[in-house]
Structure formats: C-alpha cells, structure tokens
Amino acid sequence: MRWDKLIHKQRSLPANHEETADMNQRVESWIHNYGHDLKWLAYSYVKDHSLAEDITQEAFIKAYQKFSTFKEQSSEKTWLYKITINLCKDYLKSSYMKRVVKKGAEMFRSLPSDQSTPEEYVVNLSEDEELLQHVLRLESKYREIIILYYFEEFDTKELAEVIQASPNTVKTRLRRARQLLQKQMTSEGGTRNE
C-alpha cells in the first residue's frame, strides 16, 4: 500500500525511491506491531470503535509525516503511543465533543434501560469484561496509567516519557489508580453480596 496517497498534507519527500520504500516498509511494520494496541489505547479514551480506528490511522499518518523530526530519544513505540494519546486528548477537548457528545449522553441517560438492575448487568459480564469496565470508568489520567502499565507493559520511565511527567508522578498516579480500582471493585462487590 502506498502511504503517500493517504496523506494530503505537504511533507518533505525522501530524496530517492529507496528512502520512500524504506519509509513505507517502516509504516507497514508499525501497523503490524502496534496497530491493534494503539487502537485499543484510543478506544480507552474515546470509547467508540470507529473513532478509535480513525485516530489510530491519523496517528500513523502523523508519524509518517513527522518522522524526520523524530529524534530517537525514545523508542518508536513510545513515540507512536505519545502521538496517539495526544490525538485522543485533542479530540476530547474539541468543541464538537463538548457540544454534541455530552448533550447526547445526557439525553440517553433519561431513556429507560433494557437492563432490570445494575447488579444483573454486572453478573452477566465475564471477569475480564468487568475489570475492563472498571478501568474504563477511571478518570483519564488514572485509566491511561493502568492501560499503559499493565496492558501495554510500559515501565515507569517509558510511562513518564509518554505522559510527559516525572517518574515519581507516574508512581503516584499508578498507586492512586490501583486504590481507585480496588475501591470500585470492592464497593460493587459489597453491593452485589448484600
């Protein structure tokens, strides 16, 4: 697949055909190695599969366009995760998100639910799905720490680089995220057992 066809913005083209082929191969490698994980990461932010796919594709396009600015102070994986997280945060800050999605969510809250009780809904989920639901309910700064640390297996140094914070901040957020997750699961488990 020719990636230059997908990119509409002007970028500096490689000097020769060989460099173009190398870059196309690099992008294919990124997609193969990180595509699924980046899509999952984007979904954890935007909670919409098609939007997560769009953001993931946009991340690869942006990385392709800006590869000449990559200083190799981190791994390509860390760089791609940082691009994806920034695109997700930009989307969530957008005026469209504030105007349309939040108003729509308020409207749907007033509709009656198909589920008879929240307890029955949780009982029907598998343990993995239940854990995922708890993680997705966390505030974004805690959710991203849990996902990147446990699911993507970033160490604290890489995490600090990705979220642009100090390693101590990462450790504090990770500890706080674990506490919040445990509190959520304990309070729900207590409610279910009553």
Rank of each mutant, 00 (worst) to 15 (best):
C88R: 00
I61Y: 09
E76Q: 14
R2N: 15
S187R: 13
M185R: 09
A52N: 07
D155H: 06
V101Y: 06
Y149N: 15
D22N: 09
K77C: 03
M185P: 08
Q10P: 11
V27G: 12
K39M: 04
N24S: 14
A105Q: 09
F151R: 15
L92E: 03
E139Q: 14
L136Q: 12
P112M: 06
G35H: 01
K89C: 02
E158W: 02
A105G: 04
I145M: 13
V101P: 06
V46M: 11
D128I: 01
G35M: 03
G189V: 01
M1S: 10
K103V: 00
A160L: 08
T169L: 11
A42N: 08
E153N: 06
M23D: 14
R99Q: 09
V123Y: 13
V123P: 12
L51A: 04
R109A: 02
I147F: 09
K82A: 07
I145A: 13
T186K: 14
D54C: 01
D114W: 02
D54L: 06
Q65L: 06
P14H: 07
E129I: 03
K39R: 03
F70Q: 14
L51D: 12
Q10R: 15
A15C: 11
L13A: 03
I147E: 14
L180A: 09
S113D: 10
